[in-house]
Design a protein around this nucleic acid. Structure first.
Lengths: 125, 125
DNA sequence: TATCTTGGTTTCCAAGAGGAACCAGCTTAC
DNA sequence: GTAAGCTGGTTCCTCTTGGAAACCAAGATA
């Protein structure tokens, strides 16, 4: 049994944890970031994202739709046309995501250096 | 074959993607966020993070160490004592991660509302 | 002697991710 | 007229990953 203070603290952290877990799987952040450049159709999005499989892109998009980050607009022409775009919530979310992406771009050299140093330590450790 | 412009563009995105993928698994961001409050030993960290298994926490920490975000300090006493702490790089990384966490805290109501709306649409759709 | 501690690793099983094939509904090519 | 191809998926199968639980060393404690 935890003290009330700790309980509150832990509950808040668990909440952050759940939300963070909901958005930080392998592809979600990347998809949000790509859609931040503009709406895209399924296969165009897939090409932009890179090596994602259809199945995983579909489920990632469904989850993003469920969380209210992206909208899915079907135009019943032939061939079918399904456009994915960020919602207001998704665009707001883009701000911290871009912060993350920019940090990654700015610091990838440091990350690579750290990996190299680790490999050296491990290599002749 | 892509045009040079696109190739450059795609290469940069792939790079962001790789880096983003490296840090955005289920637990990494959360562990970084928790360690941002101060160094912790393995089991203390595990209790703070919540429902993570030992195996996954161990591998998450190894990867964070590999990327240069956390340091691992072993004190050879008995029982063994292993302290994990953010490095300079990890502390720098904390800034965008906190941005994300704060956004999540500030907008969790909107996320929940979107989920509820989606469930309603699906419920009697 | 038996048990508890710490920080893991190993084992086993279920869940998830990925590749490939398939599908519908229409268009184009041969 | 029939075969192939486009779209946006779904289904099937496999392989990797995640999680629970057991095990481990090396001492402290009872």
């Amino acid at each position: 049994m935890l003290k009330p203070d700790n309980q509150e603290h832990t509950a808040a952290c668990a909440h952050i944890g759940r939300m963070l877990a909901r958005i930080s799987d392998k592809w979600t952040l990347l998809v949000v970031q790509v859609l931040g450049r503009g709406p895209l159709r399924f296969n165009a999005l897939r090409r932009e994202v890179g090596e994602i499989s259809q199945k995983v892109l579909a489920s990632t998009l469904r989850e993003l739709e469920e969380n209210g980050f992206v909208s899915r607009t079907v135009t019943p022409v032939t061939p079918p046309q399904v456009e994915y775009a960020l919602t207001d919530l998704g665009r707001d979310f883009l701000e911290p995501v871009r912060g993350l992406a920019e940090w990654v771009v700015a610091n990838s050299a440091r990350m690579d250096a750290a990996r190299a140093a680790y490999a050296r330590r491990r290599g002749h450790g």
